[in-house]
Amino acid sequence: TSSHKLRLYERDDYRGLMSELTDDCACVPELFRLPEIYSLHVLEGCWVLYEMPNYRGRQYLLRPGDYRRYHDWGGADAKVGSLRRVTDL
């Protein structure tokens, strides 16, 4: 099985509160109590970021690497509604 891990930060450049995720999350704002995510670091696996909860809205593919600001993943703003692991490519 492949492993997945990413870290979410409330501010750009990996500042502020950090939360780690290793499984799908249908509602990021509810789980982490963060209305917006300004940076993230994908440590393992690929993920799909959705701008709205319950895997809706615009989708962004996140490969392992650094995303210091939301425009690094192509986002128009810092809204992160849900995240899902990519298990098949």
Rank of each mutant, 00 (worst) to 15 (best):
residue 4 H to D: 02
residue 4 H to P: 03
residue 5 K to N: 00
residue 5 K to M: 11
residue 7 R to S: 02
residue 9 Y to R: 03
residue 9 Y to H: 04
residue 9 Y to K: 06
residue 10 E to S: 12
residue 10 E to P: 06
residue 11 R to A: 14
residue 11 R to I: 06
residue 11 R to D: 09
residue 12 D to L: 14
residue 16 G to Q: 03
residue 18 M to T: 08
residue 18 M to I: 07
residue 19 S to Q: 11
residue 20 E to K: 00
residue 21 L to I: 12
residue 21 L to G: 06
residue 22 T to H: 07
residue 23 D to C: 10
residue 24 D to Q: 01
residue 24 D to S: 05
residue 24 D to F: 06
residue 25 C to G: 02
residue 25 C to M: 07
residue 27 C to I: 07
residue 30 E to Y: 06
residue 31 L to D: 10
residue 31 L to N: 13
residue 31 L to E: 10
residue 31 L to Q: 15
residue 32 F to L: 09
residue 32 F to N: 09
residue 33 R to L: 13
residue 33 R to W: 06
residue 34 L to E: 13
residue 35 P to M: 08
residue 36 E to C: 12
residue 36 E to R: 10
residue 37 I to L: 11
residue 37 I to G: 12
residue 38 Y to G: 12
residue 38 Y to S: 15
residue 39 S to D: 01
residue 42 V to L: 03
residue 44 E to T: 10
residue 45 G to N: 00
residue 46 C to V: 05
residue 47 W to Y: 00
residue 47 W to C: 00
residue 48 V to H: 10
residue 49 L to I: 05
residue 55 Y to V: 01
residue 56 R to D: 13
residue 57 G to Y: 06
residue 58 R to C: 09
residue 59 Q to T: 10
residue 60 Y to K: 03
residue 61 L to E: 14
residue 61 L to M: 14
residue 63 R to Q: 12
residue 63 R to N: 10
residue 63 R to M: 09
residue 64 P to Q: 09
residue 64 P to R: 02
residue 65 G to F: 00
residue 66 D to F: 06
residue 67 Y to T: 00
residue 68 R to C: 03
residue 68 R to V: 05
residue 69 R to E: 04
residue 71 H to Y: 09
residue 71 H to K: 13
residue 73 W to K: 12
residue 75 G to C: 03
residue 75 G to E: 01
residue 75 G to S: 09
residue 77 D to I: 07
residue 77 D to H: 15
residue 77 D to M: 11
residue 78 A to V: 05
residue 78 A to C: 08
residue 79 K to Q: 10
residue 79 K to C: 08
residue 79 K to H: 09
residue 80 V to R: 01
residue 80 V to I: 13
residue 81 G to M: 07
residue 81 G to A: 04
residue 81 G to C: 00
residue 82 S to R: 00
residue 85 R to Q: 00
residue 87 T to C: 09
residue 87 T to Y: 13
residue 89 L to H: 15
